[in-house]
């Protein structure tokens, strides 16, 4: 066996991790080879040297220092879960942030929902908004009929004048002054009082959609009605309803809104026209018009 081979084996020889045959061979060689003995001694010395270094002791604080780091690490892991789900352990900023977030979300939801709430409320509001309007209108009517009553009282004194001839209906202003024969008006004052608000209300209710509500004061209701009907048909209008009441006639017609002004002009020739209500917004087309034909009186000019 060569020294070189032996030296490689010596390494295992020291470790004791060697077969008995090899050990015998090496032992045999070592008896005669000084060089290999020297190498073996050096090797032994080297490993001895390393073993002699011995163990060093850890500082007393090492465990504590490690565990402090571990606990803060564990705390960081926990913070994600526990601090979120155990409110009593949470830090104030977390709670404050959550509270602010809640408030903001609530306001946001409320704001986004408001338009819908308005929509839901809208019909109700319309109703309530209209109610007082109707009432005032009806009281207006009431007032007007009362005025008429008063007028009729005066008129009765001047009732010597007979109703002006129908031909003269066109001479508006001058003839207006002429008092109407109050006979019919005065006749059923009480009835009138009871009745007058009713048709007015009904008329309003019907004209609710949109359109025109006119009063034409004339001397002769019957004649005026016929004239108005003619005018309406001339303007391509349609008479949908004719109502004859004690002191007035009410015509309900349908007319293209573009011709309203023409109608007004013609009506002015027939009598004194008062516009009670006008709601003509919206698209053009046929609109409903109510024309109340009343006996002319001094006050209604």
């Amino acid at each position: 066996m060569q020294c070189h081979d032996i030296q490689e084996k010596l390494f295992v020889y020291i470790d004791g991790d060697i077969s008995s045959e090899e050990r015998m061979l090496i032992d045999e060689h070592l008896k005669s080879c000084e060089q290999c003995n020297k190498t073996l001694a050096e090797m032994k010395k080297t490993t001895e040297c390393l073993r002699d270094l011995g163990d060093i002791e850890p500082p007393a604080w090492l465990t504590q220092k490690i565990m402090t780091k571990i606990r803060s690490e564990a705390g960081r892991e926990k913070s994600l879960w526990q601090k979120l789900f155990y409110p009593l352990h949470t830090k104030l900023p977390v709670e404050a942030a959550v509270a602010v977030l809640l408030a903001v979300t609530t306001v946001y939801i409320f704001k986004t929902m408001q338009p819908e709430m308005k929509l839901a409320k809208a019909p109700l509001e319309e109703m309530t908004a209209r109610m007082p309007f109707k009432e005032t209108k009806s009281t207006d009517k009431d007032l007007m009929s009362r005025k008429n009553d008063i007028v009729s009282g005066k008129a009765s004194q001047a009732s010597q004048h007979q109703a002006a001839p129908l031909e003269k209906r066109d001479e508006k202003v001058s003839e207006e002054k002429r008092l109407p024969s109050a006979g019919t008006v005065a006749k059923d004052e009480s009835q009138q009082r009871a009745l007058s608000p009713a048709p007015a209300l009904r008329a309003l209710a019907e004209s609710k959609k949109e359109g025109l509500y006119l009063t034409v004061n004339v001397r002769d209701i019957k004649k005026a009605r016929e004239d108005i009907m003619k005018v309406v048909t001339q303007l391509n209008g349609k008479i949908t309803k004719t109502e004859s009441l004690a002191d007035r006639d009410v015509l309900t017609i349908e007319l293209n809104s573009e011709r309203f002004d023409e109608l007004l002009e013609k009506l002015k020739l027939i009598g004194v026209v008062e516009e009670k209500e006008r709601t003509l917004d919206g698209p053009k087309g046929n609109r409903e018009i109510k024309i109340e034909i009343m006996k002319e009186s001094k006050q209604t000019q």
Binding site: L53, D55, I56, E57, P58, L62, T63, I66, M67, I70
Partner: peptide, 21 residues
């Protein structure tokens, strides 16, 4: 964590020796 502390105490010396060498 206590179980981990046990392991720290048990192995820290050998750990330190390896690191130091």
């Amino acid at each position: 964590i206590d179980a981990f502390e046990f392991l720290v105490k048990k192995h820290q010396k050998r750990m330190l020796n390896i690191a130091f060498r």
